[in-house]
Amino acid sequence: IATATAKKPAPMNTMVSHLLVVEPEKLYAMPDPALPDGPTKAASTLCDLADREIVVIIGWAKNIPGFPALSLADQMSVLQSVWLEVLLLVVAWRSLPCEDESVFAEDFALDEEAARAAGLLELSGVVLQLVCKYRALRLEREEYVLLKALALANSDSVHIEDMSAVQRLRDVLHEALLEYEVSRRPEEPRRAGRLLLTLPLLRQTATRVLNHFYSLKLEGKVPMHKLFLEMLEAMM
């Protein structure tokens, strides 16, 4: 009986199970075949993809336990401040299996040469630095979904009215991460901390990517959808 109990896998943390169920479907970039390849097409593809990803992220956030309980104003403040961090975590996760490629979507992955040709070398470089960190940690899907929800709850927006409600959301997710690591990775007692310590690089990466998009907006050569512009402006 003792052996059977020891071999039985630990029950899945209910938060992790929930987060796995609400994981959104993959999006495709679908670059416009009518446009000639080059920086304008790449930037345009990326901005269009980001706009659709934001819609998906908003829908996903509504399924994060505790998020819908925030006031509408606070839900907006949280999303406006962290959407790009969440989006970058999605891209980093997609890029994990591919060495030296930034996988913005299943049909839009750039290696160094393609990134240079697309004028996205710098952007791809900062994404790859993040990917490198998660690859070194051998990030698992369960940890990824927890970290993504934590990135949402980790908003430091000065516009949040009820910070204690956001803190509660953060605490519940933090607790779920600790519980998951204790049950699944008891041999790595510092793993939860290591995962949380990737959040500063995620924020730094988001700031750099935001600057890239904002420069594109100022140049005015690439069409941007209204929601993307709205979210971009909210971060500036």
Partner: peptide
């Protein structure tokens, strides 16, 4: 919310239409 009307609408109604 006037400046952020699409986000507001998506959170409130959940309708991604006509963006």
């Amino acid at each position: 919310t006037e400046r952020h009307k699409i986000l507001h609408r998506l959170l409130q109604e959940g309708s991604p239409s006509d963006i």
